[in-house]
């Protein structure tokens, strides 16, 4: 597979998987207004995924479609980072993950607008407005929960502890990312880490939260080595397409 296709699938898989996780909240949110907000973010992310999959399908040809790419690939073919596939957890974990990812995606898309690939650049440009809102919304919730009550602060610390080690993977370029960076298609993710940390620190400071001191790195998702969580998720997501192959829905 060529690097641009693999990179496009990576971008698509990230947002499909996170969108799917967020959509698990629809109908079960802690406050009606926030049920609407998290569903809206899920919808934005699924929409971004469709744009990337459609582009990849066009490049792949051979009757590939957005749906064949989302529904008929195996977990090992998925190129999303491990952060997005983790279970939704409680509201604190969902918020923390969204904040980490949106802060990353904001920087990524800001740079990706200047991609030498005009379709990638256009999707980044179009999505940036949404991501700006996701980042603002999740930052506000990090502050609310960090600063709110002892209980909410305690839960946020647990969520950060559970998710932190998955964040370095965002900034370690997979081979297809490096190849696309060399062609000026993709930003160099390692160059985004400093600004990302700066954003996390400043929001955490307001939220009375801190970055864990002894972090480790758990990675592999971007090259297809996933946690068991993804297999369960895809088993559910893909079941109709697998059960009734070739049908129109």
């Amino acid at each position: 597979m060529n690097d641009l296709i693999e990179y496009t699938l990576h971008l698509a898989d990230n947002v499909l998987v996170l969108g799917h996780r967020n959509s698990e909240w629809t109908g079960h949110g802690p406050i009606l207004e926030q049920d609407i907000a998290i569903s809206n973010i899920a919808l934005d992310l699924v929409g971004q995924a469709r744009n990337f999959y459609q582009y990849a399908a066009g490049m792949i040809g051979n009757e590939a479609t957005e749906d064949s790419l989302a529904y008929l690939r195996n977990p090992g073919d998925f190129r999303n980072c491990l952060l997005v596939e983790q279970g939704k957890g409680d509201w604190g974990k969902t918020i923390t993950r969204q904040f980490f990812f949106s802060a990353f995606q904001f920087l990524l898309f800001e740079h990706m607008r200047g991609s030498s690939d005009s379709t990638i650049a256009a999707i980044a440009e179009k999505s940036l407005k949404e991501v700006t809102y996701h980042l603002r919304w999740s930052s506000e919730w990090v502050v609310r929960l960090g600063d709110g009550t002892d209980e909410s602060n305690r839960r946020m610390k647990i969520a950060i502890g559970e998710l932190w080690d998955y964040t370095p993977e965002l900034f370690i370029a997979a081979p297809y990312e490096s190849a696309c960076t060399n062609k000026a298609i993709a930003p160099d993710v390692s160059s985004l880490e400093e600004a990302w940390l700066e954003r996390i620190r400043s929001v955490f400071a307001e939220a009375l939260l801190v970055i864990p001191e002894h972090g480790a790195t758990i990675s592999g998702g971007k090259i297809g080595a996933h946690s068991a969580q993804l297999e369960f998720m895809l088993g559910e997501m893909q079941y109709l397409q697998r059960e009734y192959p070739g049908n129109q829905w």
């Binding site: 079960h28 509201w91 929960l145 600063d147 209980e151 909410s152």
Partner: peptide, 19 residues
């Protein structure tokens, strides 16, 4: 399902009010 969403969300609503 409604009761569980309500109860699991209680700490979130309390945190938002406190903040």
């Amino acid at each position: 399902a409604r009761i569980s969403a309500h109860e699991n969300g209680a700490w979130v609503r309390e945190a938002a009010d406190a903040h």
